[in-house]
Simulated assay, not measured.
Amino acid sequence: MLTEVIATRYVTPLREGGSLPGIVEADDLGTYVMKFTGAGQGRKTLVAEVICGRLAQRLGLRVPTLVQMQLDPVIGLAEPDQEVQELLKASGGLNLGMDYLPGSIGFDPLAYRVDPVEAGRVVWFDALINNVDRSWRNPNMLVWHGDLWLIDHGATMIWHHNWPTAQAAAAKPYNASDHVLAPAGPDIGAAAAALAPLVTEELLTEVTAEVPDEWLVDEPGFDSTDALRRAYVEALLPRAATIHERISLEAEVKASAGPPGWLTDHLPEWPHKTDKKKSGDE
């Protein structure tokens, strides 16, 4: 299970994310990025963070250490931002913390080169969990001490928002043409050969067991938290075996519609006719 700590001081909000995570200090003297159960995306975001974050770590990818964080909303009484105060009040109890990486910088593909092997592993992993939030617009990766770290896996496994269609959704291909590492020439075949055999039923069972029960209770269609955990295993296990065959890396090339007719219809065809002779013909 994830280590449990107690939040002791709310430091500052991180406004880059839509869920308004915050930097928080804890009783183990650590500093964490805290994601809240009271945020708009709800507890399923935290479930995805745990399953995908721990799975990535077990596969050898770099993800900040995850912890369970107990929050007493009283620590936010001095916070002047009303939005933050309301978020803290709505998030009393168990939340999720990710180890804060001081001095890390956001990944920039123009400044940091990723080799095809590592790029392939990241793209394959994102295809497995159906990560729709690792584009060049929002890489959700950090560079820390010269290494690439993966963060923010809340927008993954979108099938868990509609379990009756989960099996069909989990079987769909993955379009990686917009992935921030697509230009790095990711070696998907090598990644699949190395990582797919590691994604066993035993591993997925261990990873899903790390999700706290209180984030899984009362899910419609499931009579127990163990049954819900089993549903995550059944969605990810077959996907791991074949997803490399259904990863698309090439963007579609669409013909340009061209300028509007009102702008060009009155113009003569090119090359334009002219009555002037070239100077050499005079």
Rank of each mutant, 00 (worst) to 15 (best):
S135A: 11
E214R: 07
V132P: 00
G103V: 05
E202N: 06
A240S: 14
V5R: 06
G18N: 08
A168C: 00
P183D: 07
C52T: 11
M34A: 15
L77S: 13
W159G: 06
L87M: 05
G103A: 05
M157G: 04
D275R: 06
G106C: 07
R134F: 08
G280I: 13
P164R: 07
S224C: 10
E16L: 14
A39F: 02
A119Y: 13
K254M: 08
W124G: 00
A231D: 08
L267K: 11
P220D: 10
V5T: 11
K277L: 15
P260R: 12
V180W: 05
L142K: 08
K44F: 09
Y32E: 10
E25G: 03
A192I: 00
R9N: 02
N175E: 02
E25S: 12
L20R: 14
R246M: 05
P13C: 02
A184C: 15
P183I: 10
L96I: 03
G261R: 06
G60V: 08
L2Q: 11
L59K: 06
A155K: 04
T264Y: 00
E282L: 13
E210L: 08
K35Q: 09
D223I: 01
Y112Q: 09
L142P: 04
R58N: 04
L101A: 09
M1F: 04
V211E: 02
L46H: 06
R62H: 13
K172S: 14
V33L: 14
L181G: 00
L71N: 01
L249Y: 01
D147A: 15
V47A: 11
L87T: 03
A251L: 09
E25A: 12
L128M: 13
L71K: 01
V211K: 01
A227Q: 14
G92D: 03
F222L: 07
P271G: 11
P212S: 03
D223E: 15
A241D: 11
E210M: 13
S256F: 15
I23C: 12
F125E: 11
G221A: 05
S135H: 15
A7T: 03
A155H: 02
T3Y: 00
R43H: 01
Y100W: 15
D147Q: 15
A193K: 13
F107Q: 10
K254R: 15
V207F: 02
A26N: 03
V24P: 05
K278F: 04
V47R: 15
M1V: 09
P109V: 02
W124L: 05
N130C: 09
D226H: 10
V24Q: 04
S135W: 13
I105P: 00
E83S: 14
T31E: 12
D152N: 13
R134M: 08
V143F: 03
E245Y: 07
A166K: 11
Y100N: 05
K273F: 02
V11W: 12
R239Y: 02
G17R: 14
A155V: 05
W159D: 01
P259L: 15
E282V: 10
A182G: 01
L55I: 07
D275Q: 07
V5M: 06
A227M: 04
V63L: 13
Y112L: 02
P183N: 10
I158M: 12
V117S: 12
R43I: 01
Y100L: 14
G40S: 14
A170Q: 04
I6L: 06
T225K: 04
E79M: 09
L20M: 12
T208D: 06
T274V: 06
